[in-house]
């Protein structure tokens, strides 16, 4: 890649916080670094990954609305976790996390467990019980 070809396809995915370093050659073929604010294909696949996550969150919200899942499912998906990862953070079994995704079980959770979930997601217990 030539230095002048290092793409600058800024779609604000980096929030103006960073230009990433790319290695490229100048006209004499000497390597150096150039800052890049993004490249279209990179932006496409990065957005693709986030669209996928957002789609999952939306699907979960519908299920919560229908009473099939507890709000815990929303916070889990929003934090890009699955049952396995969440169980590790909670230090409880996957089976138990699975149970807490059921509305009836979630509604009967003790204060201690609720607090621990809230801590994992860095929110309050009040927020944990809602989906926003």
């Amino acid at each position: 890649m030539k230095k002048k070809d290092v793409p600058q396809d800024d779609e604000n995915l980096f929030e103006g916080k960073v230009k990433v370093v790319k290695y490229a050659v100048d006209d004499e073929g000497n390597y150096g670094t150039v800052g890049s604010s993004g490249w279209e294909p990179e932006n496409v696949v990065l957005k693709q990954a986030w669209d996928e996550i957002n789609k999952k969150v939306q699907g979960t919200l519908v299920k919560i609305e229908a009473g099939e899942l507890s709000p815990l499912a929303y916070h889990m998906e929003k934090n890009i976790m699955d049952v396995g990862m969440l169980s590790q953070y909670m230090d409880i079994s996957k089976r138990n996390v699975g149970k807490h995704l059921e509305p009836s079980r979630f509604n009967n959770l003790d204060e201690k467990t609720l607090n621990k979930y809230a801590e994992v997601f860095d929110i309050t217990v009040e927020e944990l019980k809602k989906t926003e």
Partner: peptide, 10 residues
Amino acid sequence: RMQEEIGTGG
């Protein structure tokens, strides 16, 4: 993503 996105320098 693995090729370009995670700080590979291109």
